[in-house]
Amino acid sequence: MSQKVGRQSLYDEVWTDPVTDVAGRYGLSDVGLAKLCKTMGIPLPARGYWAKVRSGAQVKRTPLPSSGRFREVASLTRYDSEQVKAKKAIEQRAKETKKSLGQVPVPVEQTVQHPLVTTAKQRLARLDSASEKRLLSAPDEVLDIEVTAGSLDRALALVNALLLGLSNLGAGVEIDREKKRTLLIFESTHFGLKVTERITRREHVETPEEKKAKERYWKSADRYGAQYPSIPRYDYFPTGQLTITAGHWPSRTWNDTGRTRLEARLAEVIAGIVALSSEIRAKEERQAREAEERRQRQLRYEQELQRWEQERALFEELEANAVRWERACRLRRYLEAVEANSGGEGTAEFSEWLAWARAKADWVDPLLKAPDPLLDAPKPKRPGHWWEASE
């Protein structure tokens, strides 16, 4: 969960521990933390600062300037020591994977073709590219590729080399037709894979034919029955620049750049996907632990609530029995007073009433549990209508 970190707090951290350690606490790279500190106006220790500190030298800190136009707080996610350790292990694995792969070739003429690439080539080549953006895509049928016709062969060659390289590491791939995506399956994790082409757009400039079509519409006698000319607002242009995206949250993205195309960085992409699978698995395991902790907390709460309710019910029963016992004692004292006041010469009717009253006192007394055939029975029901009586 993200938290607000102020300038002063972050300044104290980067001058107490090396930037590498502080960056790891927040899941950032050294460069990422340096950029953040720059936007917040936080000076960083110069090169050699920590060597001087370790040697015991007294080195002054660069003071934190006044806030002025700088950001006061940043929203950061703080990781515990175990998470930082796991992140470093994932990064180390990515480096080792990239080193072991070396240069991954992407031949134009593919002697070995992944079956899903073959199917995608056949299906996408048959699609109509006359849509507004001219993108070819059928993610519910074949691999999730969204490119123009001019970039299709290159995208397929790139995906083919990528899938073959991943399959050598034990990864699988399948089409999720329901969610319209391509799923990579690697070390018990499932995450999406997509290749897209960047498209630029510009405001559409009306052609002479479109202008004439609009004029004909406005001059038409039956204008309300005619259809207004369909003129696009933008024109879209392919760039040939491809992007590979893996995962969703977390995710990784690799783009063509002005200096390097994705074909030259395929080992980096594969290593990044391997690292991403470890990150996703760690996230899923953490979420599973958190879910189990929530379940255990809920279970403890329900057990404690049940004990509380049982204790409450027993106490209420205790109080009720005490009240009933007091009522029974009060009735008996009253009957003793009535009998004493009668002078001992009561009639048979009085004796009968006295026996009845003492039975009621016994019925109220919880210590005796004496039943009463009339009061223990349910309350008589009001008679219904004549048609109900016949049922």
Rank of each mutant, 00 (worst) to 15 (best):
S167I: 06
E96C: 11
V364Y: 14
R54K: 15
A275G: 12
R181T: 09
L166G: 12
Y49M: 03
A267T: 03
A320G: 00
T118M: 10
D176I: 00
G41M: 09
L276S: 10
R265W: 09
E302W: 02
S2A: 04
G172E: 15
P65H: 11
L242P: 03
N160T: 04
T77S: 01
P63I: 05
V19W: 06
I270R: 15
V147N: 14
T200F: 09
T200L: 09
G165T: 09
K85W: 00
W254N: 01
K52P: 11
S131T: 14
L124A: 02
D153C: 02
E215F: 09
V338S: 00
W308C: 06
L101S: 00
A86M: 12
R358S: 02
Y79G: 10
L299T: 00
R297E: 14
K38A: 08
E317R: 13
A155H: 10
Q296C: 05
E178V: 05
R216P: 05
I270S: 00
P366L: 00
V147Y: 12
Q287P: 04
G27S: 06
T97R: 13
T39P: 07
A213V: 11
T118F: 05
T148S: 13
P238E: 09
G6Q: 12
H190G: 03
D376L: 10
T207C: 03
T196C: 04
E82S: 02
P139I: 06
H385E: 11
D365V: 05
V338Q: 12
S81M: 12
L152F: 07
Q92W: 14
T148A: 00
D235K: 09
P378K: 08
Y79I: 02
L33W: 06
R71S: 01
D256M: 05
P380G: 05
V205I: 06
H190K: 15
G165D: 03
N168Y: 08
D365A: 01
G272W: 08
T189V: 10
F70C: 09
I231Q: 13
D12L: 12
G272R: 14
E302S: 01
S230W: 05
V338G: 04
E197W: 05
G24Y: 03
E302Y: 09
G48I: 10
D362K: 13
K121C: 06
A357T: 10
K60W: 03
V22A: 08
A340Q: 13
W386M: 04
E326P: 07
K214V: 13
T200P: 05
Q303D: 01
A157V: 10
E203Y: 06
P383C: 05
D12G: 01
H204P: 08
S342L: 02
R177Q: 14
E349Y: 12
V142S: 03
